[in-house]
Design a protein around this nucleic acid. Structure first.
Lengths: 332, 332
DNA sequence: TCCGATCATGTAATCGGTTGCATCGACGAT
DNA sequence: ATCGTCGATGCAACCGATTACATGATCGGA
């Protein structure tokens, strides 16, 4: 009678060889003779043997897992990056472990950065403490932790913001507002700086009255819209660049509800190009980030690092201004 | 000079006890004396010892991981369920492994259902073969595999569809269309059946001309809209119930682009209540699914199963019809 | 004073593969 | 005929923690 699950020694006994030979036949077939290989294969079939990963990993001193630290799993923006990551890791034989940095305590998170839990880390959250992340190979994707030396895969957020502003300025807008991301976020800072610099470069004033707080979420876009609606008509911006598409949706939804027409009365540019915004009314003009590719490249660079190819350079992916229906020249 | 990472024997030597005592002090402190515990704690501090999970798991014959099989990680619908799952698993000390059933071969997927890779499985994809999934504890969430005996956490899709139809019928609509999900999907079938039955119950005819193919995706909503636009004005439905919010967005975007006004010319009801649809113009009337809760409960039931509490009943969560701006009485 | 119960701790087997080293036979070269 | 080489395989020591069992100390009770 067979015990629980068959072990390698069960296969060895049935094939009439040692466990060492079975192991070699399975993981490096070139090392064993043709006949032995056949005998082992048949014994594996007969017993229904499946390898025990825990045992193999213990011996190999690796886990076969990669952790992705995500600030908000429910966020469609990050899930598309995750999708890119998964599409690279799965074929490479790695497990993708996902941890939400929002719903876990700091100690829990750091426990993911242990070599016995995962072989590497992909960090999508720039607000984590750099200290805890140095114990294993790390790649930063999209966001990044200031002070942490590790390869980054990202876009040029400053330049991207400038593209948005330039587009609006080209249309003739002179007062271009900005709804920023959450305070302290590296993306927030880069995009806001890009907005400021581009305004100045075009001879426009990035007045504080044109800057609205936000946090990338839908509701904060709505709140920004209320602030905009409360401003006197002749001093409020005729165009707004928002640091995320979600905020842009919240913003447009709110102003439209108050009778404002987009783009006739107000032009709006978003950021990210999440799938949905091509289909809302009006379709959103936005900056497209190659999210899937971003995830894929981050994963590839981490794998390269695990194979010993160390390369601390940053990868900067190109963005694209997608012109749709939410922008037009100002009235008058 | 310390070797690589400190092992339990390093701690033992420093504390002047055996490895067994260290193990006990760490995992079951009640078993050791006060002084020993203090000595061990101090030695742990001094060495910076962290447990090796692979070794512990090998001995315990468990992995500490739960796999979620997701059809399309990038889909915001699923990522919210994942978020619920993660919020339960992390505090319980389990790793969440995510695998995208779309981007992996069948053999790869089945390899996730091995006891040495994970302790349990949460299946969000109803199109998987039941055969491979029986090797470990499974819970089905949202979608389910027909023929697979395992607890299901889901909503009453028939009833939910009926709620949508009844709402439209109450408004006075007599021709109510339906854009279905992908063929063969269990949700597609249940929702379509609910639409049919409710129509009949209200004395309406679920004419085949009122039924449009779809696949839950944005584009298929757009395609359905083109079909609708091509129909003669006096025979096309005055209201459409779509099996997903994404399709509803694609549908509305397309008809609005052709000068149709929602809800004046056409009423639209979606399904899911993904976050964004509250903010588009017009805000979408839809069926809300408690996605986060769905994930949480699925995870809790799996954990219960892992602790030996077997319970094969289904959990049916309540849905809610959310009234917004995309529905109104028909003209005339 | 002696015995059994109780508590703290150590010894060593165990979880299940992997792999360095040794062994052995066959074969080509000298 | 002899030696060196090479290919195939087995032996046994790992990887690092857990835990059944054994041991020894302590203590209360007879």
């Amino acid at each position: 009678m067979m015990h629980q699950r068959p072990r390698i020694s069960d296969v060895a006994r049935l094939a009439g060889v040692s466990t060492a030979t079975v192991s070699r036949a399975l993981s490096n077939p070139a090392l064993v003779s043709e006949e032995t290989r056949a005998a082992v294969d048949q014994a594996v079939q007969a017993t229904g043997y499946r390898i025990n990963h825990a045992a193999r990993n213990l011996r190999h001193r690796r886990t076969g897992g990669i952790v992705a630290l995500v600030p908000g799993l429910a966020n469609p923006f990050f899930s598309q990056i995750l999708s890119g990551i998964a599409s690279v890791l799965a074929p490479a034989g790695y497990n993708l472990l996902v941890a939400d940095t929002r719903s876990a305590g700091a100690d829990t998170l750091l426990s993911y950065a242990e070599p016995s839990r995962a072989d590497g880390l992909i960090v999508l959250d720039g607000t984590l403490p750099a200290a805890g992340l140095t114990r294993m190979p790390v790649v930063l994707a999209c966001e990044w932790v200031p002070g942490l030396i590790a390869p980054r895969v990202k876009i040029d957020n400053r330049e991207a913001a400038a593209m948005a502003v330039n587009h609006l300025a080209d249309l003739g807008h002179r007062r271009i507002g900005h709804v920023a991301g959450p305070p302290g976020n590296v993306l927030t800072e880069a995009r806001q700086a890009g907005w400021q610099e581009a305004c100045i470069a075009r001879g426009l004033t990035p007045d504080p009255a044109l800057l609205y707080p936000g946090d990338f979420g839908l509701d904060s876009g709505q709140r920004a819209a209320r602030l905009w609606l409360d401003q006197p008509k002749d001093s409020r911006p005729t165009a707004v660049f928002l640091a995320s598409d979600e905020m842009a949706c919240g913003f447009i939804g709110e102003v439209v509800r108050h009778g404002i027409r987009v783009p006739q009365d107000l032009s709006v540019v978003g950021f990210d190009d999440i799938e949905l915004v091509a289909h809302i009314a009006p379709p959103l003009t936005t900056i497209r980030q190659p999210r899937n590719q971003l995830g894929r490249i981050a994963a590839e660079r981490l794998l390269a690092r695990l194979e010993g190819r160390v390369d601390d350079t940053d990868t900067v992916l190109p963005v694209e201004l997608v012109l749709r229906g939410s922008t037009a020249p100002p009235r008058g």
